[in-house]
Design a protein around this nucleic acid. Structure first.
Lengths: 351, 351
DNA sequence: TGTTAGCACTCTACCTCATTGAGTGCTAAT
DNA sequence: ATTAGCACTCAATGAGGTAGAGTGCTAACA
């Protein structure tokens, strides 16, 4: 049986109502609140059909209906009206991003903060794998006798450093020499392209003093590892405590334990990350993680030009206000471009 | 009335028991579990005295007694036996610290992680105000046409950087000149000592090109602000959910909201920070923050030589295992020295 | 004088039972 | 096809009743 227009409207009423109130919706409520010009009995018949088709269900016999995962799916795909953020919400996002950003990851973190504030759900963000980052500059700087700093800078403006210990006999001039060799050999490579043959080449050029080269190479790999390692930010976990879905301490505990598993979340986000800028919605059981079957997750990956900012996800009860979350995610996209350009300086990566 | 020896032992029994079970302790339990050779009736009389003196109280008439804040205070000051960590716990701390540390703040974070794991309470850590950090080295490194990196390194091994935009006309040689001036004028100063007169002096030396100097000075102040800004780390908040004190969702919400106020926590920790390495215990109402009146906070400030690592605090229900927390905090202190020396390189700050 | 057995008393936690009300499904009339 | 009407179901609420833990007090005892 296909959903005729009336059934669709009734289903939409039920879901809209349930998203607002978190209470099972009865036939009388639907008849009253939304002016179908139909009696509750008629609505009741339609609701029975909708239930049979799997779009809604009853918590128990004498309760109203609540949407099933399938119901939400249909709602999200076909019924939902796109909504607009209020002016205040837009300003809130703008001001949240209006802080000096020293690092690209910090921007992602700010996005996450703003997102949890606007949606009132929990927001998570994962930095992308930076294997495609191109090394733009390497510096080996003497700090004092026996200590030096290795600095690696990438095209996406990431700066990482590593403090190393070198023999006290090394002269600044020698460090400059090493510096030049490193730049000559490594600049322009993605960090994925740095492998043994490349390293060997460098070793040959600086061959005499293994004792100097080792710590420096270690410093470089340390920096590269830092660049490549994915971080996960989490904001607004306590927002969830305001929803009746989490009025039970065990539920809260389960949720918070899940949110504590940063690696798991990071992997999940990276799996869901799309390259085409689209938004992915996973509703309830559609999530792979068992403990998330009462939650929905809306994710998208932000990128500006060829710079990946990261993947952001909003997690809330399945009863979440999908429309608003989508509005927030899309509005955010339009705001990010400015910030990235401000950070990188125009044309840095559009040569 | 002073506490005679028997009263002390009974009080200790009650508190020990309550710390373990979280259940009000009755006279019979005290008589049975701890072999005083006294009947429950006698214990009952003593308990009535202890209650009158304010060390214990009854939740309601037909319940046993639970310690009051005053009771805990007496326990902590006079009754508590010092305990030792188990071998597993010690190993756990060691392995938690056994990760490559790139920054001093990262060590503090690891300490906090280990502390929450061992105590099973919530651990917070605040980085100290670094106003006394001495600038050891400043580098201005060209990255590409029109972009440069300002790097500031302190005696405590903190490295901060700031990416800046400079006129494309600036030559590398000129940057080296600026670099030398900055080092000459700023190295050896604490960040507190950097003020307008010093800045002016630099301005005079590099006077011709304001356009170059401004972004560089901004970069330097940006780094200094990063160094000086206090960060707060929080670990193991979900541990609290395992205690019956937090079986109520509202309590959980209150607690988590409090833990979300990082600035507040940071200020609190810094206020409690002692320079002499002693441990401060704040029990229940002794805490200034209203919402913490059901919690106790144990804090100490770690420093190695003249390097401040930070202030760490363990927060738990007033019924916390004070003895264990103290043992963990003290054991940690002994382990930190190694890590700091490993990080800074021996003698870096003991010239 | 300190200790203890005994007892009446108090109060929470828990169980059971009845009531209420929201909502349903079905049937018969329109 | 729609709807009024009605019997039915079930969670939520609240009232009583009971059990058990623990107390304070008293009187007897060493």
């Amino acid at each position: 049986m296909l959903l005729d227009d009336r059934k669709k409207r009734i289903l939409q009423s039920i879901i809209d109502d349930y998203i607002n109130t978190a209470e099972p919706v009865g036939s009388r409520t639907v008849a009253r609140k939304h002016e179908f010009g139909l009696s509750s009995a008629t609505i009741r018949n339609e609701m029975a059909d909708l239930e049979e088709m799997g779009y809604i269900k009853q918590p128990h016999t004498s309760a109203g209906r609540i949407p099933s995962d399938q119901g939400y799916r249909f709602y999200v795909d076909q019924l939902m009206k796109t909504s607009q953020l209020t002016v205040e919400e837009m300003l809130s996002i703008k001001s949240a991003l209006d802080v000096k950003i020293n690092e690209l990851n910090q921007l992602l973190r700010q996005i996450s903060v703003a997102m949890s504030k606007i949606t009132r759900y929990t927001s998570m963000a994962a930095t992308p794998e930076r294997k495609n980052s191109v090394i733009k500059n390497i510096q080996v700087v003497p700090v004092e006798r026996g200590r030096a700093l290795v600095i690696v800078i990438t095209n996406s403006g990431i700066v990482k450093n590593s403090l190393i210990t070198i023999p006290e006999t090394v002269t600044p001039e020698y460090l400059i020499f090493v510096n030049n060799v490193l730049n000559e050999k490594l600049v322009g490579l993605t960090i994925e392209q740095i492998n043994m043959p490349v390293i060997s080449e460098i070793e040959v050029l600086i061959s005499p003093s293994q004792e100097v080269l080792m710590p420096i190479l270690n410093g470089v790999t340390d920096c590269i590892n830092q660049i490549d390692s994915s971080e996960v930010y989490l904001e607004g976990t306590i927002n969830m405590l305001n929803y009746p879905e989490f009025s039970d301490v065990d539920k809260v505990k389960d949720f918070l334990c899940l949110m504590d598993k940063k690696e798991l979340l990071g992997r999940m986000l990276n799996e869901l990350s799309q390259n085409n800028g689209s938004v992915t919605i996973k509703i309830g059981e559609e999530n792979k993680i068992e403990k998330m079957k009462d939650c929905s997750l809306v994710t998208t990956t932000y990128r500006v030009g060829n710079i990946a900012i990261g993947t952001i996800g909003v997690i809330g009860p399945t009863r979440m206000d999908y429309s608003k979350v989508l509005a927030a995610i899309n509005f955010m996209k339009s705001k990010i471009v400015d910030e990235v350009e401000k950070f990188l300086g125009k044309n840095l990566d559009h040569p």
